[in-house]
Every structure is written in C-alpha cells, then in structure tokens.
Lab assay of single mutants.
Amino acid sequence: MDGTRTSLDIEEYSDTEVQKNQVLTLEEWQDKWVNGKTAFHQEQGHQLLKKHLDTFLKGKSGLRVFFPLCGKAVEMKWFADRGHSVVGVEISELGIQEFFTEQNLSYSEEPITEIPGTKVFKSSSGNISLYCCSIFDLPRTNIGKFDMIWDRGALVAINPGDRKCYADTMFSLLGKKFQYLLCVLSYDPTKHPGPPFYVPHAEIERLFGKICNIRCLEKVDAFEERHKSWGIDCLFEKLYLLTEK
C-alpha cells in the first residue's frame, strides 16, 4: 500500500471551527459572476446526480424540485425535460440570464411583489422559475412545498455562521416524503479558508438530524488541478440523501 486515501476511508478533519467566522457578502458573489470567477459551475452537470437520477425519480412526473443557490445549473433542465417543475433561487441576475441563454430557453421576467426590487424569471414553458433574491428572503414569497431539493454548491457556499438559518429555510420548503439530495466537500479547512466551505458529517447531523434521516450514498475523489491553488492536495465530495423521519 502506498498510503493513498480512497473514497471509502475519508477521515473527518478535527479543526472544524477554523472557518466559522468566514463571510462572503452577496455583493462579492455577484462580483464573481461579473468577473467570470465561476469555476464552481459544471458545464456537463453533476455526474453523481446523473448516475442516481432515475433511481431517485422512480419514474414519477410532476414533482416540484428546488435548487438553492442555483446559478446556471444545467441540471435544472434535466428535471424540466422529465416533466418536473423547477424552482431556483440565485442572487446573480447575470447567472440566471446565462442559464436561459445557454439552454436556449425563452423566458419572461416579473417583479417579486413580496420582495421589493427583486425579480423572478420564468421559462415560456412555465416549468422553470428562478427567483433573483437572497435565499433568506425566499420564504416571504409563499412558493409552496417541494418534493425534492438538489443542494450542490449551496450549503458549502453559505457562510458558516448562517447555516442554521439556511437549514431552517430548507425545512420550511420541504413537503411530505421529501428527498433532499446534498453534496458537501471534505478537505483540510486549515489550508483553505473557503468558500466552498468544509462541511463535516457531524455538521450535517447537527443541522438536519432532528428532522431528517441522513444517509451518505457515495464518496468520490473530486480533486482537480485547479484545487492546488487552494493549498490542498486532497478533496473529496460526498452525496447524501436526507429523508423524512
């Protein structure tokens, strides 16, 4: 054995408090879109979701699917093309516009009456609605409950000090017999300040354990050449399924 860690023996890093005071403002996230600093976007979609999607959907149609901090995630069109209703929230209007443009979807925009100064973008087909606002303002819009949440790049982007508020927001959107698919990253948080932030299993239990059954479905090596600039040499991604207790 050469000592290389595999996707099945990932350790939890003990120094989980080192990132707790890290803060990125909404304006800084918007600047990332304006300046093209969106390496977190996956042009081909998320491979773990693609692998498990049909198993999760079980042939159902007409589900309501929520994408927190959606950006221009191509997976939104995957669900819409399968007959589901997609709702996303994203602070960057540019990111939302790029989604519709890159997916060749016509759309309209209208003000969100409950949140002055914000807009919702709706596909002409009517099954994709993307709200351009802070996720913490979203419950004011009465958008209803969801059958499924796809959380990739959301919890790991939320400032650590806001995670409890974020989890409570997610709980307010969950319908009966929900499936909450959650991706988190595992790396040494003493070497990279984030975002994306390190979210250990214990944190998921703390945030969601009282209401959800929590199961880790898969762990994969997600390290890429660009991650060397973070000062790390190891990065794993974990896919969790959260269901109603």
Results as ranks from 00 to 15, higher is better:
M1H: 03
D2L: 08
G3E: 13
T4S: 12
R5A: 11
R5G: 14
S7T: 10
L8I: 15
L8A: 15
L8M: 15
D9H: 10
D9M: 05
I10E: 14
E11L: 02
E11D: 15
E12S: 10
Y13H: 10
S14N: 15
S14C: 15
S14K: 13
D15N: 07
T16F: 13
T16P: 03
T16A: 12
E17A: 10
V18G: 11
Q19R: 02
K20Y: 14
Q22E: 12
Q22I: 13
V23G: 11
V23R: 12
V23N: 15
V23D: 04
T25W: 05
T25D: 13
T25V: 06
T25L: 06
L26E: 09
L26C: 13
E28Y: 14
E28N: 04
W29C: 04
Q30E: 10
Q30R: 07
W33Y: 03
G36Q: 11
K37E: 14
K37M: 14
T38E: 06
T38W: 09
A39T: 13
F40E: 10
H41W: 13
H41V: 10
Q42W: 08
E43H: 01
E43W: 06
G45S: 05
Q47E: 11
Q47R: 10
L48T: 09
K50M: 12
K51H: 14
H52R: 15
H52S: 09
L53R: 05
D54K: 02
T55N: 08
T55M: 11
F56D: 08
K58R: 14
G59E: 14
K60E: 03
G62E: 11
G62A: 14
L63I: 09
L63C: 04
R64S: 10
V65Q: 00
V65M: 02
V65E: 00
F66V: 01
F66G: 01
F67M: 06
L69A: 05
L69E: 04
C70P: 08
G71I: 03
G71A: 05
G71D: 03
K72M: 02
A73N: 06
A73W: 04
A73S: 01
V74S: 09
V74T: 07
E75D: 06
M76S: 01
F79K: 00
F79T: 04
F79M: 11
F79E: 01
A80I: 02
D81R: 05
R82D: 08
G83I: 01
S85T: 03
V86L: 01
V86N: 00
V86I: 09
V86P: 01
V86Y: 01
V87Y: 04
V87M: 06
G88Q: 01
E90Q: 00
E90T: 04
I91K: 09
I91V: 14
I91G: 07
S92N: 06
S92P: 02
S92M: 08
S92W: 03
S92F: 01
E93R: 11
E93W: 06
L94A: 07
Q97V: 13
E98W: 02
E98K: 05
E98R: 09
F100A: 00
F100V: 01
E102G: 07
Q103I: 11
Q103L: 05
Q103Y: 11
S106W: 10
S106C: 03
Y107A: 03
S108G: 08
E109S: 03
E110T: 12
P111V: 13
I112F: 07
I112P: 02
T113V: 09
T113S: 14
T113N: 09
E114V: 05
P116W: 05
P116K: 06
T118Q: 02
F121S: 01
F121A: 03
F121K: 02
K122M: 05
K122W: 04
S124N: 03
N127F: 06
I128T: 01
I128C: 04
S129P: 00
L130E: 00
L130W: 01
Y131E: 00
Y131A: 01
Y131T: 01
C132V: 04
I135L: 14
I135W: 08
I135S: 00
L138R: 00
L138V: 14
P139V: 10
P139T: 15
P139W: 11
R140Q: 12
T141E: 04
N142G: 09
G144Y: 03
G144H: 07
K145C: 09
K145A: 06
K145M: 07
F146A: 02
D147P: 00
M148Y: 13
M148L: 14
M148G: 03
M148S: 03
W150D: 00
W150Y: 11
D151Q: 00
R152S: 09
L155C: 14
A157S: 15
N159S: 09
N159W: 04
N159L: 03
P160E: 05
G161W: 08
G161C: 04
G161L: 09
D162M: 11
D162E: 13
R163E: 01
R163A: 04
K164M: 13
Y166W: 01
Y166V: 01
Y166T: 00
D168R: 09
D168P: 07
T169G: 10
F171E: 02
L173W: 08
G175S: 06
G175H: 13
K176P: 09
K177Y: 09
K177H: 07
Q179A: 12
Y180M: 09
Y180Q: 01
L182A: 02
C183T: 12
C183P: 01
S186W: 08
S186A: 15
D188Y: 05
P189C: 06
P189L: 04
T190I: 13
K191I: 12
H192W: 14
H192E: 09
P193M: 15
G194T: 11
P195E: 07
P195M: 02
P196D: 04
F197V: 02
H201W: 12
H201F: 11
A202S: 14
A202G: 11
I204Q: 01
E205G: 10
R206M: 11
L207I: 09
L207W: 09
G209K: 08
G209W: 07
K210F: 14
C212V: 10
C212H: 00
C212E: 01
N213T: 07
N213P: 01
N213D: 12
I214A: 07
I214D: 00
R215Q: 13
C216N: 13
L217C: 12
E218V: 07
E218T: 09
E218Q: 08
E218N: 08
E218A: 12
K219M: 05
K219Q: 07
V220T: 15
V220K: 13
D221S: 09
D221V: 14
D221T: 06
A222H: 15
A222T: 14
A222F: 02
F223A: 13
F223G: 09
F223V: 10
F223I: 15
E225L: 15
E225A: 11
R226E: 15
H227Y: 13
H227G: 07
K228P: 09
S229H: 12
W230G: 07
W230R: 05
W230K: 07
D233Q: 14
D233V: 07
E237F: 15
E237C: 05
E237H: 13
L239D: 04
L239M: 08
Y240G: 01
E244S: 12
K245L: 09
